[in-house]
Computed example of a mutant assay.
Amino acid sequence: MWAIGSTAFVILGLSIFALQTKWELTITSGVLLTLFFVLIAFGILCAVIQSMWIRITYASVGSLIFSIYLVVDTQLMLGKKHHYTLNSEDYIFAVLNVYIDIINFCLSLLRFVGFLK
């Protein structure tokens, strides 16, 4: 229940941040893709080296990356004055991306508290 509550709190805060911020994070998609591949490689390393501290670090980095993905996807959906926007036909795709970001963030928090291994 702590992970679900903290996920809801963080997601609400990040969504409000994405709605009102003047910072444009939509141009960081290439950096986020690179960080995601580094997270995958670190996950493989975590599977080989079994340590509690490495799992906590992996979960922390994963939750950070997926929270940035959530802000970027929310800004893509809004499309205000940002560099990249989505068409009106792509909103189903954007909503699915936000949903996947929320699920991955929640899974990272569950790994952080030790419920998932």
Score class of each variant (00 low, 15 high):
Thr28Met: 12
Thr28Cys: 08
Thr28Glu: 06
Ser29Pro: 04
Gly30Ile: 11
Leu32Val: 10
Thr34Trp: 06
Thr34Leu: 13
Leu35Gly: 04
Leu35His: 03
Phe36Arg: 06
Phe36Glu: 03
Leu39Gly: 08
Leu39Thr: 11
Ile40Lys: 03
Ile40Phe: 00
Ile40Ala: 08
Ala41His: 05
Ile44Trp: 05
Leu45Asp: 02
Cys46Arg: 04
Ala47Arg: 14
Ala47Phe: 12
Val48His: 01
Val48Trp: 09
Ile49Arg: 06
Ile49Trp: 08
Gln50Gly: 05
Met52Val: 14
Trp53Tyr: 10
Ile56Asp: 03
Tyr58Gly: 06
Val61Gln: 03
Gly62Pro: 03
Gly62Glu: 02
Gly62His: 05
Ile65Thr: 00
Phe66Gln: 02
Phe66Met: 11
Phe66Gly: 00
Ser67His: 07
Leu70Val: 09
Val71Gln: 00
Gln75Asp: 07
Gln75Ile: 02
Gln75Ala: 02
Leu76Phe: 06
Met77Asp: 10
Leu78Ile: 09
Leu78Pro: 07
Leu78Cys: 03
Lys81Thr: 11
His82Pro: 02
His82Glu: 08
His83Val: 15
Tyr84Trp: 15
Tyr84Cys: 04
Tyr84Thr: 10
Tyr84Pro: 08
Thr85Asn: 14
Ser88Arg: 08
Ser88Met: 08
Ser88Trp: 01
Glu89Arg: 13
Asp90Tyr: 14
Asp90Thr: 14
Tyr91Ile: 15
Tyr91Trp: 10
Tyr91Phe: 12
Tyr91Ser: 09
Ile92Asp: 12
Ile92Tyr: 14
Ile92Cys: 11
Ile92Pro: 02
Phe93Thr: 13
Phe93Val: 14
Phe93Lys: 12
Ala94Trp: 01
Asn97Gln: 14
Asn97Lys: 13
Tyr99Cys: 15
Ile100Leu: 07
Ile100Arg: 06
Asp101Pro: 01
Asp101Met: 03
Ile103Met: 11
Asn104Gln: 13
Phe105Arg: 06
Cys106Tyr: 12
Leu107His: 00
Ser108Lys: 05
Ser108Gly: 14
Ser108Trp: 04
Ser108Asn: 13
Leu110Tyr: 00
Leu110Asn: 05
